[in-house]
Design a binder for these strands. Structure first.
Lengths: 236, 236
DNA sequence: CGTTCCCTTGAGTAGTTTCAATACTTGTGG
DNA sequence: CCACAAGTATTGAAACTACTCAAGGGAACG
């Protein structure tokens, strides 16, 4: 819910923070939630990243990325079972919220319910942008778009840095997210480096000029519903 | 909400149907909702299809498809502004539901609120599957997957036919949905016809063997949360 | 200090795009 | 009913992009 901070009062923010019943440290790659399993609690990502994985038969593909402050499996609350796996990326800290507790708060605070709903809608909006990206852009622009999005989302939760960030993905994982192969991703990253100066190696992006990166892939952050243009429904 | 019929009581279904304040006929291609515009009502697709479009600068791309019974812009309720356009596909009939009315019902019927939420989560699940499909499948398998999904979704709202359906898309639009070109889509459709017997021409799919089509693209409908394996949260 | 995983590079192959030309469908007005 | 126009679908060939296989170099971890 971190990304909704501008839409929440201090009271509401405390209400959400108080929902967390336990905190855990997770090792890199550890599962946060698994496909098909019935969920009795949901997870807030307090620190680190998480990936969504869909795999049938062959290698699983990465179909989503969550950053600190995100509710990663709020779907489980309404859907009971998840359709995909969620894994920690690098070392993470998570908080668990029981569905029973969530239900109590939601029934008494309709506005908070709408905020939780908004949170999942934001994820849906991001997924539509990923579809758009996969349909329309080449490999180098796709990965640039991923970097722009992560930079922007980190900025929305106060973790933004102007010259890059740590994102513990391998090039093979980046390739999976961009619908290409590890070898081709390596070449795409070199083209990106030559064109924009942004270099990614061993889970670290160094980017001297974010604007240049955004120009390279025609990045428009409107779909992230950040403070400014588009805002969630007002309180009341 | 048509697709949730199995999760709703008759009373709840009537409650949703009574929400509809006005019905309209739409001409092919007519806009249902536009990016950026503030929405005061949401739309249920009563008959026909709708597409979601994202376009920045160049040609817009199709990033989503809705069938009869779907709430097409429920996002607008929580998000106020949409991040993309929604257009009618072929002749459609829609119903409008004011947000004021929606809010009333939601605050009094928490379970109904969860059903609406579930409806948007189902769209999100479908979008994740689209991402997976674009990342991992070739053009012929992608379009086969689209056909399987539409067939399944029509079946979920009682409009299923064993030998195909009318889907008023051009090959250029299918290409847009599958991240390829119109020319290549034509070739992909021929390969699909040769491999499975399913032929698509001028907005009509003729498919003698749906199972064969499903096998061709390794289609698994679990992500649609149909009656069976995965179900929304129970009432109460 | 070596093993393992990750990244890079090259060369050949397969798949996709582009451009351009032709044919088919549908709808319109003579 | 036919002719025409506009949109839609198919085909071919050349250029391009991406994939695969394979080998070598580099970073991180024990």
């Amino acid at each position: 819910m971190g990304r909704l901070r501008d839409a929440m009062t201090d009271q509401e923010r405390h209400l959400v923070e108080d929902l967390i019943e336990s905190e855990h440290e997770l090792a890199p790659g550890e599962a946060i939630a698994c496909r098909g399993q019935e969920t009795v609690s949901s997870t807030i990502l307090i620190e680190g990243f998480a990936i969504r994985l869909i795999g049938r038969g062959g290698e699983p593909h990465i179909v989503g990325l969550q950053v600190a402050g995100d509710f990663v499996d709020l779907h489980g609350f309404a859907l009971v079972r998840l359709d995909h796996d969620i894994h920690a990326l690098g070392r993470t800290r998570i908080g668990r919220v029981s569905h029973a507790r969530l239900r109590q708060v939601i029934d008494r605070q309709p506005y908070l319910a709408r905020l939780l709903w908004f949170s999942t809608l934001l994820d849906a909006s991001i997924q539509r942008e990923w579809i758009f990206k996969l349909e329309g852009l080449g490999a180098a622009q796709r990965v640039a778009h991923v970097f722009c999005e992560v930079s922007w989302r980190l900025g929305m939760v106060g973790l933004g840095r102007p010259d890059g960030f740590i994102l513990p993905l391998t090039q093979a994982q980046l390739a999976s997210m961009c619908g290409t192969t590890a070898v081709h991703m390596s070449r795409a990253l070199r083209r990106l480096r030559d064109a924009t100066g942004a270099s990614f190696r061993h889970g670290k992006l160094h980017c001297p000029d974010m604007k240049e990166l955004a120009r390279f892939c025609d990045f428009n952050p409107a779909y992230l519903y950040g403070p400014g243009e588009m805002q969630p429904a007002s309180s009341g």
